[in-house]
Amino acid sequence: MEMTRRKLLAFGSGTFALATLSSLPAFATLTDDAIAELTGGADMGEGAITLTAPEIAENGNTVPIAFDAPGAAEVTLFADGNPVPNVATFKFGPLSASRSASTRIRLATTQNVVAIAKMEDGSFQMAKANVKVTIGGCGG
């Protein structure tokens, strides 16, 4: 087959389309792996903990988030669209009044923030929040 420029372009873009389809969101499997490592593959319940994050983050550099996980011994936060999914792990000591905390995080793109709580009884609970990360202004 004669490789004309047109054929090469069509061939190339076809491969690209295939590659894109199979890789969204880019880091979701990294996050799944990190979560599996944390839970040992155990099932995760939902509904017992809450995660608060803005629907639209004005700037991905500094996104305020908060969680409340009554009965949790430890809470780990992940960002499934970040190059490194782990965000932070909060271990609660004997003098913590509530199993809650707020912080500010970096989000590279629109993605889910995931909170996994390891409860005092050894079970796991999950909460997810989708945050749209925007680019604004004329300079970005």
Binding site: N61, T62, I135, G136, C138, G140
Partner: peptide, 23 residues
């Protein structure tokens, strides 16, 4: 909206300002 930014009147009463963009 300019892209996803809500355009202000460009007032400077709030300057110096901590921009989330460059922290």
């Amino acid at each position: 909206m300019i892209r996803a930014d809500h355009l202000s009147q460009g007032q400077i009463n709030g300057f110096p300002t901590y921009r989330l963009k460059n922290t």
